[in-house]
């Protein structure tokens, strides 16, 4: 029951929704694909987010309770969640609560979260440059291809590329080469990867529907 019921639900749901795609009928188009697929799935997924939130809060509360290493930082994480919860959900709109533009929630987002995230990602510029130095050492033909493509794309996307084109009177046309690399070899690569991913996704979907793939059920009975 505990394992067979979910497996039966997956099988029925999978088969019904697969067939519904090929049947242009009111039930398949309006009820299955619009109402259930769009509206119901959203509602069910909302609760999954709540579980994720609970897990995170539970983790940090436990860290504080057990006073594990660096537990003090968990207070900051929980404070962040708490502040946003109060100003975004509990505080009425007349006191600048809510999530609309101009609210306290929006002010915190613009003045704290956006700079923090932007700086965090910009920090990667330093590490990605160091990684590039190591990856781009042209030790083989493959590494040379990687190096040349990256250098051309980087030069083609900055004003320096335009300047070089002007100086060389169009002989070294990095912007044009960049576009070609993105349109042809890059598209070919992405397309091949996407086809592989799609075939893998279909095989996995089929395995899930037929009950061959059961890891999502978890280990216990």
């Amino acid at each position: 029951m505990k394992r067979s019921l979910p497996l039966a639900i997956v099988f029925i749901g999978g088969v019904v929704f697969f067939i519904s795609y090929f049947v242009p009928h009111y039930i398949s188009e309006e009820i299955l694909q619009r109402q259930i697929m769009v509206e119901w799935i959203k509602v069910i997924s909302l609760f999954a987010f709540v579980i994720g939130l609970y897990s995170l809060i539970h983790l940090h509360v436990n860290k504080i309770k057990r006073k594990v290493d660096n537990w003090q930082y968990s207070i900051l994480t929980l404070s962040g969640i708490g502040v946003m919860f109060i100003v975004g959900i509990l505080l009425p709109e007349k006191f600048n609560g809510g999530i609309q533009q101009g609210s306290i929630y929006d002010w915190i987002f613009m003045n704290l979260q956006v700079p923090l995230q932007a700086t965090m990602f910009s920090l990667l510029a330093f590490y990605i440059t160091s990684a590039a130095f190591r990856a781009f050492k042209a030790r083989s033909v493959e590494a040379t291809c990687l190096l040349l493509a990256a250098v051309v794309v980087m030069l083609g996307r900055v004003p320096l590329g335009e300047t070089i084109r002007s100086i060389t009177q169009g002989f070294l046309d990095f912007p044009k080469w960049t576009q070609w690399i993105l349109d042809v070899p890059n598209t070919a690569t992405k397309r091949a990867i996407m086809l592989g991913v799609a075939l893998g996704m279909m095989a996995t979907s089929l395995k899930i529907i037929l009950g061959i793939e059961r890891s999502w059920l978890g280990g216990s009975e």
Binding site: L53, T77, G80, M84, Y105, L112, Q113
Partner: peptide, 13 residues
């Protein structure tokens, strides 16, 4: 840690 908390709180809102 503040960024993580605010991001989750933002998602919560």
């Amino acid at each position: 840690h503040i960024m993580i908390g605010l991001s989750v709180g933002y998602g919560l809102g």
